[in-house]
Design a protein around this nucleic acid. Structure first.
Lengths: 206, 206
DNA sequence: CCGGGCATCCACCGATCGGTGGATGCCGGG
DNA sequence: CCCGGCATCCACCGATCGGTGGATGCCCGG
């Protein structure tokens, strides 16, 4: 019997998932949780085998929860189940140790197969995610911004000139420019407007 | 008997909703649809009273579907049911004639009350949406961009200089600058980077 | 102990941008 | 029929930005 934990902040999604598994032989929904923190607690307490985890949740997001679970209970498999095809957390989730990645618009039987596959230790990727993964992996590996660079980018997105950003961060205008140039490099763009755009697309801004 | 149509591109969400209503006396789930186009067809064919409509869907989005339904079948009530609190289509949906607006993380009983209220002709707003509505309404009324302005903004977001944008649109650089100045006005910003940022925040870019 | 990543600073230059103050033609609503 | 919104174009100027090619000090990890 595969013991399952559903972690999602939307009651409706939880209900839908529970309904999908309820009738299924060999799979048992052991419990639910509405955020990452609850998810970690219950995954341990209920001794589950598989966790179905949403990424965007209050309290503690999915990626953090996956990281924590991986440390404390490395035998528990985590299947990420998210709404967004364009979700910017796809890669972080996999890096954090997710066993698989599914989109919520997957048909129910694909869900069931995925859970069984994950229980057997196989990695699971929905086709669209697999495609994105391959595309991203051959890319420069999504250079992450440093804290400082993100601060600068945020200020620029809010309309600050280099001078104003410098004033807010108590550093010189020259440093702002350097940070921006580094950001341009990492993003593969040539000006602040495109950098802001890329920042949103990568989920670094909002 | 209230006849209901569920329109959402995620089978799991449809299942969850169907399960929530199945047991409910006086409410009958007459059918489901996976996108706006199907939704319009089935709403008419199945003679439903209420449509539960997601906004983000392939083929035809929710706002377009609501607009079309409002024209062809004004007596059918549409309840928007979306995942995102920060969804930028909240206002367009209401302008398009949605009877109500709910977030999918609403508890099941709130859903039921909402459907009954909508059937009775009452407008339905989940508290968080009501708050945002009020906040927005007192704001400058979200000046919409013209088609041309949006084209320019999109190009700028992709890193185009004024000159490059001009070349792509077969107009002069001066016109690009004029369009940008109009955009700055409407957005209340002073430079292209902030305009791009605002474009994303308002859901005009992605 | 030394290399490398990070944050910080500097100067100089050409290119671009934003601001101002116009003008024209088209179209649709009052 | 005229006004207003929209798209288009023009010129000019100062401010800002992006590019280049450096430099320093810090701290972490091999």
């Amino acid at each position: 019997m595969i013991r399952l934990l559903i972690v999602d902040d939307h009651p409706i999604v939880r209900d839908g998932l529970r309904a999908a598994f309820e009738a299924e032989p060999g799979i048992e929904v052991a419990g639910e949780a509405a955020n990452g923190r609850e998810g970690i607690e219950r995954a341990a307490a209920l001794e589950v085998d598989i966790v179905l985890m949403d990424l965007r949740m209050p309290e503690m997001d999915g990626v953090s929860a996956i990281t924590a679970l991986g440390r404390s209970h490395p035998h528990i498999k985590v299947l990420v189940l998210t709404t967004f095809d364009g979700d910017s957390d796809v890669l972080p989730a996999i890096e954090a140790g997710a066993t698989g990645y599914l989109l919520k618009d997957a048909p129910t039987d694909e869900l069931l197969r995925a859970v069984r596959a994950a229980a057997a230790g196989e990695p699971v990727l929905s086709p669209s995610v697999a495609g994105r993964l391959m595309g991203q992996v051959r890319r420069p590996a999504r250079a992450a911004l440093t804290d400082r660079e993100l601060q600068v980018l945020t200020l620029v997105a809010d309309g600050a000139s280099n001078r104003q950003a410098a004033a807010k961060l108590f550093i010189s205008e020259a440093s702002i420019k350097t940070h921006l140039l580094h950001i341009y490099d990492k993003f593969g763009v040539r000006d602040r407007a495109a950098a802001v755009s890329e920042g949103y697309r990568r989920g670094l801004l909002s």
